[in-house]
Design a protein around this nucleic acid. Structure first.
Lengths: 147, 147
DNA sequence: TTGGGTGCAAACTATTTGCATTCGA
DNA sequence: TCGAATGCAAATAGTTTGCACCCAA
């Protein structure tokens, strides 16, 4: 048995395809590849990380297509964009209601499920406007002896 | 009386200088200009907007210095960075505890004071780590008849 | 005087776009 | 078949950096 390089977990194609269809996204080859990696488990990936993972073994999807595809997925509600760092957008494979802890030193995101945190009073909105969503970001950093 | 072009409100220099000093920031000419505009009232400005406002009448501060200065102000806790839009960082002249409403269509930020919204349970943090802050962003958009 | 601060322009980098080609239905 | 999707490379734009000059203490 040859030494195995551990691969990224991927959904099998059929699962990925049905997830795409469930959101009305036509399942092209590249979209299926992107979805198979990103949606394989709850995770937060930047476009670039995802690009690398998808193309780990062979060049399957181009950079531009990864960006375009992620934008599409987010618009369709399949994934969620998380803006925590000016340097890059994270794509969260969990599009459901939940919030985040962002580790400033590590640059990593962790989920915070709704049981752990809750918003108290969502304000009355101006008319003609509707709620798109509420994001809560808890920022943490390494303890410092002295600031 | 000549037709007046309305100017941006600015703090007078002495006020700006003492605000800078209160945070241990040495009040150089450019920093005073930037502070005088940004801190004149509660507001949310991007670096570019601020650059334009500061240099409205005459070229007082360069672009690079505006960016560097805003970064410094944020590190010193004089202003707050607000990440809501991948396109740009907003600088909030109110560094105190409060949250935001972001209008996706307009691209505008509105304050939400702590009375109007509250976080319920801030989670226990891993040891060796401390809270940097909690951001809540309420995203709103124009009501659509059909998505 | 002298080290921090500044200005400028060039560098960087994530993301977007235009367009010819290819693909899926 | 034929419009939609893709790839590529070039364009964009916000932000950062390197470095020589300047100024306040």
């Amino acid at each position: 048995m040859t030494q195995k390089v551990r691969n990224v977990p991927r959904l099998d194609e059929d699962q990925a395809i049905s997830l795409l269809k469930s959101r009305g996204i036509s399942p092209t080859r590249q979209r299926v590849q992107v979805a198979a990696v990103l949606l394989a488990r709850p995770q937060h990936l930047s476009a670039e990380q995802l690009l690398r993972l998808v193309n780990e073994r062979e060049e399957l999807v181009s950079k531009a297509t990864v960006y375009n595809t992620l934008g599409l997925f987010a618009r369709k509600g399949l994934v969620r964009e998380v803006l925590v760092d000016r340097a890059r957008v994270f794509y969260d494979s969990n599009a459901g209601e939940h919030h985040h802890i962002y580790d400033l030193d590590e640059g990593t995101l962790t989920d915070l499920d709704c049981g752990e945190i809750a918003v108290d009073g969502v304000p009355r909105l101006p008319s003609g406007v509707e709620l798109d969503g509420v994001d809560i970001i808890v920022r943490i950093r390494r303890k410092k002896t002295r600031s």
